[in-house]
Every structure is written in C-alpha cells, then in structure tokens.
Amino acid sequence: MVDDEKYEVAFEIIACAGDAKSLALMAIEEARNGNFEQAEKNLAEAREQMAKAHDVQNDMLQSEAQGRSVELNIVLIHAEDHLTMAIMSIDFAEEFIELYKQNHK
C-alpha cells in the first residue's frame, strides 16, 4: 500500500467512525428529550456510517489475508480506536433509547 493510500484509508475510517459516534450520541440526546423518532433516525444513520467504516476495514483485512501486508502506523491505530468507540457508542445508544422509552411511558 502506497503511503498516501494507507493514510487515506485510515482517515476514511476515522471520518466514518467519528460520524457514527456523533450520531449515536445525538440519538441518546434526542431520546432523553423524548424525541424517539429522531433518535431512531440518528441511530439508523449511525449504523450506516458504521457500515462504511467496516467496509473499509474489511477491505484492509482481505488485503492482508491475500498476502498484501498492511503496514501498521499510528494513524491506523488511531482509526481503529475510533472504530471501537463508535461501535460501543452505537451499542450504548441502543440501550439508552430503550431505557428512555420505558421511562417515558
């Protein structure tokens, strides 16, 4: 993988995962305010952004599996951190939305 390409891939993961995390946190806020329809929309958008980040990550994994080594660098590690936090944010958002729905009844 060429230098520019490896950073481009990492930054794509960071951007998509960052958007997913932000949307998940917005979903929690909307649910806290009783706006469950908007919370669900934000959560759906968060999942879409997460899918994009996963697609990029899967492409890297497939490259590695096919013998084309992916060079590990601090930007890629940072991207993977963002991805992990986004996944956790979506998981937590799902739970918080359900809790807020139960308390809103």
Rank of each mutant, 00 (worst) to 15 (best):
R32V: 09
A79G: 13
H82G: 04
E29V: 03
V56F: 08
G18Y: 11
A39T: 06
I87L: 14
M50D: 12
A79I: 04
L43M: 09
A46D: 05
F36Q: 02
R68E: 15
A46V: 11
E30H: 05
E37G: 05
H82A: 00
A51H: 12
H82I: 01
N33A: 03
G18Q: 13
A79L: 04
A53I: 03
K41C: 03
G18D: 13
L23K: 01
L83S: 02
I90V: 15
N58F: 07
N42F: 02
R47C: 05
H82P: 10
M88V: 07
L83P: 05
S22C: 06
N73I: 10
N33H: 08
Q66V: 07
S63F: 07
F96Y: 12
M50C: 10
A15V: 05
K52C: 06
A27Y: 04
E37C: 01
E80L: 07
E30Y: 11
M88F: 08
N42P: 04
I77E: 05
A44T: 09
N58M: 13
F11M: 15
A17S: 15
A53K: 02
N42L: 00
A31H: 10
N33W: 06
A44I: 05
E95K: 11
R47F: 07
M88I: 15
I87N: 12
E37A: 07
C16F: 09
K21M: 14
A27H: 09
E80H: 04
E95C: 01
E80T: 10
Q62I: 11
